[in-house]
């Protein structure tokens, strides 16, 4: 069941131990009040909330994007369709949905490295990557990646050659970007399922490369 753990790792230091008599955080109480009020008024079915949580905790995540990338690596015709009209092509792999209606796929090559941010909020391609990690939503990443992308890449341990052009894509209200990382060397004999294992979330944001086969 989604979100039922008694985990208070909510980023706040309450300054005391985690026993079961701990009062709820201010946010927890506010959320509970809002939900309870809407349920009282007959305006919200808690099961609908449960269903959304379950979707994003168990079904929608970076494995979806990895399948898209692996298909593009394995099938040049699919890759061409993906780069031309990503939202349509992704449906061939069974990936579509909220916050992915207008997708653009950016191909990384030996000469061009793309990476993605949303400086204004935290726009992110949910159908392929799920919900964004905290660092993607944080002020340090959003502010700095457009000014010093190589410095940010360095923080992620990603080194690019001097001759590689870096392109930073700032998501807007409608468009969501997905990076198609370079296919690693030594993967010629791998099938799509094996290739997908090399595709990480960070490689599809553009802050890292795809993994090398071991």
């Amino acid at each position: 069941m989604a979100g039922q753990g008694h985990d208070h790792g909510d980023g706040h230091d309450h300054g005391h131990g985690h026993d079961h008599t701990e009062p709820p955080s201010d946010e927890a109480l506010r959320v509970k009040a809002l939900e309870s009020l809407l349920v009282d008024k007959g305006l919200l079915d808690p099961a609908a909330v449960d269903a959304v949580i379950d979707q994003y905790e168990t079904k929608i995540g970076p494995r979806n994007g990895a399948r898209v990338v692996a298909r593009a690596w394995a099938d040049p015709d699919f890759k061409r369709r993906l780069l031309e009209n990503a939202s349509e092509a992704m449906k061939e792999v069974g990936v579509s949905g909220l916050q992915g209606e207008d997708m653009v796929v950016l191909e990384n090559t030996a000469r061009v490295h793309n990476l993605v941010v949303c400086t204004l909020c935290s726009c992110y391609p949910w159908p392929v990557l799920g919900l964004p990690p905290n660092w993607y939503k944080s002020a340090p990443y959003r502010s700095r990646v457009v000014r010093d992308p190589r410095g940010v890449l360095d923080e992620f341990g990603t080194k690019l050659g001097d001759g590689v052009e870096v392109r930073v894509w700032d998501s807007n209200a409608e468009i969501r970007y997905l990076v198609l990382p370079e296919r690693p060397a030594g993967t010629e004999d791998m099938d799509e399922a094996a290739l997908a294992e090399l595709v990480t979330r960070d490689s599809m944001i553009g802050v890292a490369m795809a993994l090398s086969p071991e």
């Binding site: 709820p24 905790e57 990690p133 660092w135």
Partner: peptide, 28 residues
């Protein structure tokens, strides 16, 4: 704004209420 802080094996939600408000917002 300082360094980018990353978390290994980050959960989708860090507290139950995060999922509830996310789900409530999408449902409404």
């Amino acid at each position: 704004f300082g360094p980018i802080v990353r978390e290994e094996n980050e959960p989708v939600f860090h507290a139950e209420w995060e999922g509830r408000i996310m789900g409530m917002t999408l449902a409404t």
